[in-house]
Write a protein that binds this DNA or RNA. Sequence first.
DNA 1: GGGTGGCGAACGAACGTTCGTTCGTCAATC
DNA 2: GATTGACGAACGAACGTTCGTTCGCCACCC
Lengths: 234, 234
Amino acid sequence: MTPRQARLAQQRADILHAAAALIAARGFHGMSMRDLAEATGFGVSSLYNYFTSKEELLAELQIRAFETLIAAANDSRNDTPDPATRLYVFIFNQVRYFIDHADVMRVLIHEAAALPAEHRQRVRSLKEAYFRIGRDAVAAVFAQGCGTPDSARGPVDAVALDRATYSIFGMINWVWAWYEPSLHGTPEDVARSIHGLAVCGLVARCPASPSHDQLPQSLAQGQVSLLKHRTGTH
Amino acid sequence: MTPRQARLAQQRADILHAAAALIAARGFHGMSMRDLAEATGFGVSSLYNYFTSKEELLAELQIRAFETLIAAANDSRNDTPDPATRLYVFIFNQVRYFIDHADVMRVLIHEAAALPAEHRQRVRSLKEAYFRIGRDAVAAVFAQGCGTPDSARGPVDAVALDRATYSIFGMINWVWAWYEPSLHGTPEDVARSIHGLAVCGLVARCPASPSHDQLPQSLAQGQVSLLKHRTGTH
DNA sequence: GGGTGGCGAACGAACGTTCGTTCGTCAATC
DNA sequence: GATTGACGAACGAACGTTCGTTCGCCACCC
């Protein structure tokens, strides 16, 4: 990559960062290109040297974010054999990403419908790929059970698995709406609360699942950035 | 109420219905007053006979919705003494409301930040009141425990209670993003999945909590409408 | 009972502003 | 000296809102 290309890529990323903040605060239609120009220091027209339209900018933002999330989830998929712990890692990764990059999170959740039809399908398929990773983690916990001999629970059908997975995503995704570091503990606390609900519920005891004290206290931040720069071939 | 007033109130409600659909689809800034005029059959300027501004329209929409939710939650608060069942009723009421009125739901979740400062505080206090109702229901389940003698779980502090409550709200609120009646079962199924996760988690057994089969199969729809019409003094 | 005046309610047109986008030009870089 | 990239100016369209007017209904007086 020539220095020229590197500079161009960096400035594209800078613009995306600023756009994420503005769209998160005011919505896609609420952010004007003049707002974005002021935030980035560019002139309004210069932005069009980096993105062909406002909508392409939104699409790029969402695509990069999902690719980052998917890559992070895949990287940590095989770290541990225990399903409950693996689910914790999945939850924590996403919670941390969303807390660190709340702007991007809000854009992902709120502005999927604002995409033009052309880019809609691409983002949707990325979202589905990410959902499947989460569902696999949930299914593994389901299948393993808790080690309890009790088998009063009926067989888990696919529809119920989907509902449970979506519900767990709901807990994670909702974090942006309420989390305040000074009020609600560390990201680890949040991930443990969610994981606890997902695995044990509010009150049940989970003899065979790892105690929360045994869960990894911290995970390597890794090298994933807010918006991974896609190099090369995809 | 004179027929005149009744007609005016009805038309205000009609406009709010149409606005909810448009805002849900395109966002507050994405809906133009011309869109709304076309959807309602009014001329653009006639809308200003019913609402003083676009922002007041949004505020009214949110305030009515939260008042409806709070009233429904309060009405059913003392129906049953069992905490777990009471939590189920709370969850089901909200899930059903959101599935029946997905438009309003999206507006509540997405467009809180688009409110002008004047109306912001009113909506926020309604939201907090509603949160407290939910938290009380969660706290009761927490306090009762599951009847298990096992007390390995530490004392439940207020912060953890908040996190758990927010997480449960997250499961409920996220329903709008994925629920499809033909794919994901009935609203009762959804409420039971969420309640099951909240109380028992994915895998734990809950000896003392009611089996899902014993939960009320259906609840009276009640007379709450999409946007309750506030008569009189508040 | 039939005209008539007042008024709520709906409207088209137009306001000034801001929107996303394009274009021609000019300075800086290789 | 050619190419890249930043820019101000300008575009038509659409924005939220206001204005003056009209229309039709209902209460009132002759």
